[in-house]
Amino acid sequence: MGKVKIKRKSTLIDMTAMSDVTVLLLTFFMLTSTFLQKEPATVITPSSVSEVKVPTANLVTILVSGAGVVDGKRDASVEGKIFISVAGDVDSTFSSENVREAVLIEAVTNYNKLHKNNQIELTNAQVKAFSKLNMFGLKFSELPKFLEMEVAEQDEVMKHLDNPIVGIPIDDNRDMNKPNEFQIWMRAIYNVAEANKDLGNEAFASALRRSGEGIAVKADKDTPYSTIHNVLDNLQTLKLNKFSLMTALKTEQD
């Protein structure tokens, strides 16, 4: 009897096909997805049938934080904090960084005009640091200290929504001679957009003024209307009457 020879088979698997598939998947993800933006508060937007997409450029997003949950109970103290995010044009002259710098300088100048006693001074490095922030929401008086911090420290501060310095102060003021801080910011953004129009970029100004695409209000679905109304009313006072409300697409058929 002859010995049965066991053939030695190589265990190598051809990974080329697998590699092809993964590269395809990767390409798909890279092309279709957008990066998550860092936002201090997570909100679940309500759903609607509207299919108008949020523009990516020339957009001011006003985020209104929803209520938090502490020990299973609703915590209304963190509700209604305001954060603003400014996205500039694709054009590098009017990029987000440049627009944000201009907005900060404009807003601080206005603030100093109104508050002669507690003026704020910003260094160039602080202005640069501000232009890197995707979303900001802080009292003016805290800005210089905040902009000196490392990114990780800034995130730590913004994480605590119950901290009174977090969130742009807002009230139901209708007197534009004594604007509140939210109104100073929005007015500054508007002025910068108008200034950019003179420099040759009309897109931002027209998005803000005419079409209503330029301002998006993002709020949680459970937030009471009394809180939302405050923001809407401030926008009305600023004569920014046209704006959009951010929603998610309705999935079910109802």
Binding site: S19, T22, V23, L25, L26, F29, M30, T32, S33, T34, F35, L36, T45, S48, S50, E51, V52, K53, V54, S211, G212, E213, A216, K218, L232, L235, Q236, K239, N241, K242, F243, S244, L245, M246, T247, A248, L249
Partner: peptide
């Protein structure tokens, strides 16, 4: 490639928000 895919899946979002445009009176 798998690592890259995982990265993209975790750090990006496919859903783009919709907006509802409204105009309020002055």
């Amino acid at each position: 490639n798998m690592l890259l895919i995982t990265f993209f899946m975790l750090c990006t979002t496919m859903i783009k928000s919709q907006t509802l445009q409204i105009a309020l009176p002055s």
